[in-house]
Design a protein around this nucleic acid. Structure first.
Lengths: 338, 338
DNA sequence: CTGAAAGCGCTAACAC
DNA sequence: GTGTTAGCGCTTTCAG
């Protein structure tokens, strides 16, 4: 036998499996003597229960799963911490699941739902285009954090979401540049389409220009093909070689930081030679030189809202909701007036 | 009933549970007709198997768990990717587990070992002081990545490790500063002791100074109390107010970047007013301004070595080993000669 | 090729 | 208080 089972511990401690189970799960109706007896053997033999067996037999748990797409996203780190705290203070426990970019968050969630008898799910990052069939595997409430199902056909009362209005916030960012006198404003994006956050923010960029009467110039737009800093750096290099501009709107802080570095390497200064603005508000932007001006997503409020919505759904005193939060302008030193 | 079970699918598709199981697990001995039949009902009803039940009954898996301490550590992100690829190409599959700073990685690993019938474990970051009793819960081979059990009483043939020699590398970093003519070299650390990576690197700092005949000055050392950038920034502020120096050794890249920002905010320039060197080589240091000079840990090689050692252990043709890798000096623009 | 049946390790009635 | 036992949903012999 590879591992000791509860049966072994029962035998070893001279009791029965139910007594051992009671002790392990802190049930009250166990005599002190039996409890001590069991605890001693557990310690002595370093018994560790098998969670698969436990999860299989329990009818329900108080677990909320957080399914995160993109382990490298620094913006999520903060959110997860806050979500975790909120979940615990609501009396639930959290189960965190990272998935790779090629995995499907819905399938992962569906499997964990059965595996752990989940109560609810919070998705942190994910596809923007779920269909009703896609989510049919999920039988429990879920809330999408940092995105909404903008491009999917899913009924809005089938799920909840907490996010910023990406298009509008991008509009705000670009508008700020316009108000500071910039006219040739470049955009560093991931891809023009793809049902992603990049697409939404890019739309905001275009709309802001249009509303200000600034003609759209495709020369000023460069797609990195990913959200990685390395790719953003290369894209910025192409952009900078191709054309001139006095300001850049990057769809994410990380990409803006890569752009900032490219400018530095080319002996261009921020903001003297090029102003920079982005969206996200990750901690790191406080530590770059100069500090990046960015529209900060209210990470803590978003995390709290997710948990609040989900918990009220679980308690039965709430309906699916879609919350759009506003960003806060965090003025760094990367934008100047012209 | 909340979820469909394999029994339901059997009934619905007019076969038996064993046939459904065979189809689901791609066993060859199923007729095409039965297979199609089962697949159709599975799709139609969006059946998702219960992994707890599966894990409970399988005798063994080909799973290697990676237990990561510190979700926010950017250095780990790269390593995980490489580990994952290596594990898959060796024919195993990976199961990733994030743990909070207050959780015990050994207990987590022991539980997952039973839950998933693990073959082996890779710890990414963890305590430096395991005792034989601590690891008694683990029955399978494990390798510690980025650290070794420097301060523990665990027998060295009980586990494997892949890491840099933190003390020696810190020595090298500080020595580089000395060679460039620096004499007043400050150190930004986490804590003076605590059986951590910070302690080891701090020891290297002290030894380098001693070997160069530079008297140790406690004024030049500041502990941040954590590895967080925020705390490093404050610590650097205290240090900078208290005394003067021409160079700083930070025990991590992230802390160095925080220090860099503090210097900038105080109108001091890097490297003109203060040189900076650190250890780690996270991608981000390529994007700070100026680029940080750092001793880069060979993340990919370390990841590969971990998997290689573990796999050879599992195949029975290998013994526990302790590998120390060398860092590569990545010259940025943050160090000048005086 | 297919189905019946025996558990995997645990919890929770249920009897004592 | 305590022990016995019936499953949880699945895989896997073992017969047919």
């Amino acid at each position: 036998m590879t591992h000791l089972t509860i049966k072994d511990i029962a035998k070893l401690s001279g009791t029965s499996v139910s007594t051992v189970s009671r002790v392990l799960n802190n049930h009250p109706d166990v005599s002190e003597k039996a409890r001590a007896q069991v605890m001693e053997t557990v310690e002595q033999y370093r018994y560790v229960p098998n969670n698969s067996a436990r999860n299989l037999v329990i009818r329900e748990s108080d677990t909320i799963a957080v399914v995160v797409r993109g382990i490298a996203n620094p913006f999520f780190t903060r959110i997860i911490k806050t979500i975790e705290r909120a979940i615990y203070s609501e009396g639930y426990s959290m189960s965190l699941h990272q998935i790779g970019s090629s995995d499907d968050e819905l399938m992962t969630a569906a499997m964990v739902e059965r595996e752990k008898r989940l109560k609810g799910i919070i998705f942190l990052g994910g596809r923007f285009n779920y269909s009703p069939e896609d989510v049919a595997m999920l039988r429990i409430p879920f809330v999408c954090c940092t995105y909404s199902n903008t491009f999917g056909a899913l009924e809005r009362d089938r799920f909840s979401s907490v996010a910023i209005d990406d298009k509008r916030e991008a509009y705000r960012a670009v508008r700020l540049l316009l108000e500071r006198g910039h006219r040739r404003i470049a955009a560093l994006i991931e891809a023009e389409d793809g049902d992603s956050i990049s697409q939404l923010r890019y739309e905001g960029y275009q709309e802001a220009l249009a509303d200000a009467g600034v003609p759209f110039d495709p020369e000023l737009v460069e797609a990195a093909g990913s959200f990685e800093m390395e790719d953003a750096y290369s894209a910025m290099a192409r952009l900078q070689e191709r054309t001139r501009f006095t300001a850049l709107f990057a769809i994410s802080d990380a990409m803006a930081m890569a752009a900032m570095k490219l400018l530095f390497d080319r002996r261009l200064r921020v903001p003297e030679d090029c102003s920079l603005i982005a969206i996200d508000g990750i901690e790191l932007t406080n530590y770059c030189v100069p500090t990046l001006t960015t529209l900060e997503q209210p990470a803590d409020e978003m995390a709290l809202a997710c948990v609040k919505i989900l918990v009220s759904l679980l308690r039965g005193d709430g309906k699916n909701r879609h919350v759009f939060m506003e960003t806060r302008l965090r003025e760094g030193a990367s934008v100047r007036s012209v």
